[in-house]
């Protein structure tokens, strides 16, 4: 029997440019999350970096039901890769596609760039 995955995606913007594809950066972020959440809640929430979609924007995947704890934990992280940076959670959704569409319509345009006309 295939059980449905219950997941939430968080659209996160950093105050400074960040490259979450680098192992050192993603490990530091994980360590900081464990520091606030504790090992047990971190295991239950299971936060994972999903993808980087902009210079300062990335998606974080967590288990449903732990949004409040992870939001609060991200608010307390003030450093990444040796650089002072805050993490702002802009939106939560059940699908990554909705967040990417939101990013292209709102954040991308704010940066003064024009999104391509291809379908998302």
């Amino acid at each position: 029997m295939i059980t449905k995955r219950k997941i939430r995606y968080l659209l996160i913007e950093s105050s400074a440019p960040i490259d979450v594809t680098k192992r050192a950066v993603s490990e530091e972020l994980s360590r900081n999350l464990i520091l606030f959440l504790g090992e047990l809640t971190n295991y239950r929430a299971n936060p994972h970096i999903n993808s980087q979609i902009g210079e300062k924007v990335f998606l974080l995947r967590i288990n449903r039901g732990f949004e409040r704890e992870v939001l609060a934990a991200l608010a307390t992280i003030k450093k990444s890769g040796g650089v002072e940076s805050g993490f702002y959670t802009l939106k939560i959704s059940g699908t990554a596609k909705k967040l990417i569409t939101f990013y292209r319509r709102h954040i991308f345009l704010d940066a003064g760039q024009v999104p391509s006309k291809s379908r998302t």
């Binding site: 609060a72 608010a75 805050g86």
Partner: peptide, 16 residues
């Protein structure tokens, strides 16, 4: 700037 939080995060902190 790093100390700012989104409204969503501030509400979550209040709840906690």
């Amino acid at each position: 700037q790093a100390d700012l939080t989104s409204a969503m995060q501030a509400i979550a902190l209040g709840e906690l």
